[in-house]
């Protein structure tokens, strides 16, 4: 059996993820987190914050909740059910910032927590910033004409 044949065979032997039920769970749990965001926007709006500030405060609150639930070991339990429903919202970003840092505490505050806090946040911030600069360059070139 060649490697290629073996890998084909393995693919056929390996059960697929239950994609339909996974998607349903992701839809519901992701949707709920977004509704929570909408509620927060409304609450901050009521408190007199402008649209943009209310939105930023909502992000900060959700990040706080994601981080706290990760520390309490609750977020991974929800995530086991929710899959992408808890990865894609900003709370998932918070989880990906906290989780590597939390367990790297045993390696100290600088090279442990300090470095590992960027394990997943680093690539996100890097490519996000890079993409925004590329977009900025396009906007700037357009502005010249």
């Amino acid at each position: 059996m060649t490697n290629k044949e073996y890998n084909e065979y393995v693919k056929q032997k390996t059960p697929d993820s239950k994609i339909f039920s996974n998607c349903l769970k992701a839809f519901v749990s992701g949707g709920i987190i977004c509704v929570l965001g909408q509620v927060l926007i409304a609450v901050f709006g009521k408190c007199g914050f402008g649209e943009e500030d209310a939105s930023t405060l909502t992000s900060i609150t959700l990040i706080f909740l994601g981080a706290l639930l990760t520390g309490l070991d609750i977020y991974p339990k929800i995530a086991k059910f929710a899959g992408a429903g808890t990865v894609v919202p900003i709370t998932g970003f918070a989880n990906s910032v906290v989780s590597p840092a939390l367990e790297a505490k045993t390696e100290g505050m600088v090279l442990g927590v300090g470095a590992k806090i960027f394990t997943i946040a680093g690539p996100v911030i890097l490519y996000g910033t890079f993409a925004s600069c590329a977009a900025g360059l396009i906007y700037w070139i357009i502005s010249l004409f």
């Binding site: 930023t56 900060i60 990040i63 981080a67 706290l68 906290v98 505490k105 911030i125």
Partner: peptide, 18 residues
Amino acid sequence: GGVAAALVFGFLVSVIFR
């Protein structure tokens, strides 16, 4: 706002919890 919140809360949670 989001990046600072993620880093600050991330740091605090890492320090407080195990």
